[in-house]
């Protein structure tokens, strides 16, 4: 049996691929791209929420937000650690992010304008991420699958704290409810676009499915997120900003309107409201931290 046949046999039998196993070059490259993109998303994702830590409305809200942002740093570490097993260093991945060769989830290129956005981000953005990540727990690459299991276990509080913020505001004063609705209006469409292009337009999907990297398609995951979320919005008296959203009795699912793919690709290509700000901040934080790394190396050398 050829290496490729042995590899495909493992995929077929749900045997995980481990770092030292033979794998096709395309598989390795796909994973390097997807896993580093996932790691960068966790790290860049700290910025829109970090924006509100100093202005959280209560001490309780502040410690929760701090813990959530700290988790995201941790999730980024798990994913870089797993991505490094593909034979590429963390420093290289980070360099690709900073030189804009690598992408991260476009959702983080939108600004967080009010406290209600902390609710919308947790409820919708983390909610969408969880749907995707639960599916990825079954991905064929061992280190990626194990990182996903860990992340999913920790992530459940993220969505719940977001929904708690939204429900408190939606059931609060008229002004608070308006803020909650405004946050939902701004984050709804970017959130459902987090699942990526339609299956028919998704260039890399077929390889990823064939290799067991992706388990479920973009459209399937998007639909399951929408079906879960609509009732949660209704329960707290908020309206999903989609006039075409309608329960379809035959499909036992919601029909929904078309997403603005021009906007999606515009943001992917770097022209979203916050793309420049996010990368500049990452570079600045990285450079300002260099003295810490230098001091740590000097100290370690002195003690050896």
């Amino acid at each position: 049996m050829s290496d490729l046949d042995k590899f495909l046999e493992k995929i077929k039998n749900n045997v995980k691929i481990e770092p030292k196993d033979w794998m096709p070059d395309g598989y390795r490259k796909h994973l390097q791209r997807q896993m580093s993109q996932h790691a960068h998303s966790e790290i860049i994702g700290m910025q829109p929420e970090g924006n509100w830590i100093t202005r959280a409305p209560s001490l309780r809200a502040k410690v929760i937000l701090l813990a959530k942002v700290q988790d995201e740093a941790g999730h980024g570490q798990y994913l870089y650690s797993a991505a490094e097993t593909l034979g590429k260093s963390r420093a290289t991945y980070i360099n690709e992010l900073q030189t804009r060769k690598a992408k991260y989830s476009s959702i983080f290129n939108y600004p967080t304008l009010s406290w209600a956005d902390m609710g919308a981000v947790g409820w919708l953005v983390d909610g969408a991420a969880i749907v995707n990540q639960v599916s990825l727990q079954k991905t064929s690459y061992g280190p990626y699958a194990r990182a996903m299991v860990r992340i999913c276990k920790e992530e459940s509080f993220h969505q719940r704290q977001g929904y708690e913020i939204m429900s408190k505001m939606a059931l609060g004063s008229a002004e608070q409810k308006e803020m909650a609705q405004d946050a939902l209006n701004r984050f709804w469409w970017p959130s459902i676009m987090m699942f990526g292009p339609h299956d028919a337009d998704s260039a890399r999907s077929s390889d990823a499915m064939k290799w067991g990297i992706k388990i479920e398609s973009n459209d399937y995951l998007r639909q399951s997120f929408i079906d879960k979320t609509v009732a949660q919005a209704e329960l707290i008296g908020l309206t999903i900003p989609d006039p075409d959203l309608k329960w379809n009795e035959d499909r036992q699912s919601y029909d929904f309107g078309e997403m603005d793919w021009d906007e999606f690709w515009n943001v992917v290509k770097g022209k979203g409201p916050c793309n420049d700000q996010r990368i500049e901040h990452h570079i600045k934080a990285h450079e300002e931290g260099s003295w810490v790394r230098d001091a740590a190396i000097a100290y370690a050398e002195k003690n050896n």
Binding site: Q77, R90, A296, Y299, A300, N303, N304
Partner: peptide, 12 residues
């Protein structure tokens, strides 16, 4: 085994 981290020295 749970994964890895990067550090300068064993204490860190």
């Amino acid at each position: 085994h749970v994964g890895n981290i990067q550090a300068m020295g064993k204490e860190m």
